[in-house]
């Protein structure tokens, strides 16, 4: 059963073909890697999948649903959540409120209930506070729940982005360089967390990463992108030993 099927996806910026006839198939529950040298078009693929950019050509099907015409908001509701390479937190909100914003569409009360503090408000707020705390616990952030997000150290900010994305109850989670800026210890811990999320949330995960230790450690399959086109894809160990891949990374 496939969670994501991408066919012939292309986009160009001016003369630059940032992503060119890209294909990708991810099975339900898979941990999938998207790798490639700087500027290969990896983040652009995420932006296409989440509707930030509109594709020139191609189709995106999530769990049987066509996403091509949907807006970013609708795509999130359809089941894709993401983190950002250049961290995008709600800086002035507290850590727990960042997660609660992720729970926004799962918070069942109206503006009227909120302003007039009707029973629904208290019930729902209590529920989402508990849910948010659970997610913070998974990411090891419960002690910082009431910190302002901007005051978190870098590694924890990345984890908070994951918690916020998970809060939207996605089917597919996109992680853009989740280990960037982390030290080896933090990275090892993050690998465990990502596996835990996959196993305990029945999640399908697609991640971009430059840290090959992380990729070979947790990704079952990978696709390699180079200059916007796919170089190869397959079982992680095979792909990472492929001469073309090594050459693409080292340069000619």
């Amino acid at each position: 059963m496939n969670m994501l099927e991408v066919t012939n996806l292309s986009i160009s910026f001016g003369g630059l073909k940032a992503v060119n006839e890209f294909n990708l198939t991810i099975k339900k529950g898979q941990l999938y890697g998207l790798i490639g040298p700087n500027g290969a078009g990896k983040t652009t693929v995420f932006n296409l999948l989440t509707g930030v950019y509109k594709a020139d050509t191609g189709t995106i099907v999530l769990d049987g649903q066509d996403l091509v015409k949907l807006s970013t908001i609708e795509i999130n509701k359809a089941g894709i959540a993401r983190t950002f390479q250049n961290i995008r937190l709600f800086k002035e909100l507290t850590v727990i409120d960042n997660v609660k914003v992720g729970l926004h569409n799962g918070t069942p009360y109206s503006t009227f209930d909120g302003i007039f503090r009707l029973p629904k408000y208290f019930k729902a707020e209590k529920e989402i506070t508990e849910k948010a705390m659970e997610l913070l616990k998974v990411m090891g952030l419960e002690a910082e729940a009431n910190f302002t997000a901007a005051n978190l150290p870098y590694g924890k900010q990345r984890k908070l982005e994951i918690a916020r994305a998970l809060a939207t109850s996605p089917k597919l989670l996109l992680l853009d360089e989740p280990a960037a800026g982390m030290n080896p210890n933090e990275t090892a811990e993050l690998m465990n967390t990502i596996r835990f999320v996959r196993d305990n949330f029945d999640m399908t995960i697609l991640l971009i990463e430059h840290d090959m230790k992380l990729v070979s450690g947790i990704c079952e399959e990978v696709t390699v992108l180079n200059f916007g086109t796919e170089l190869t894809h397959g079982i992680t160990a095979d792909v990472l030993n492929d001469e073309r891949v090594i050459k693409a990374y080292l340069g000619d």
Binding site: T72, I73, N76, A81, F84, R88, F90, L93, K100, N105
Partner: peptide
């Protein structure tokens, strides 16, 4: 309330706010 959080989220980062629906 949930609306206030959403409004402040838009203020702090519009793109991230859209990404969570």
């Amino acid at each position: 309330s949930r609306d206030g959080r959403a409004i402040m989220a838009i203020r702090d980062n519009r793109i991230a706010a859209e990404s969570v629906g």
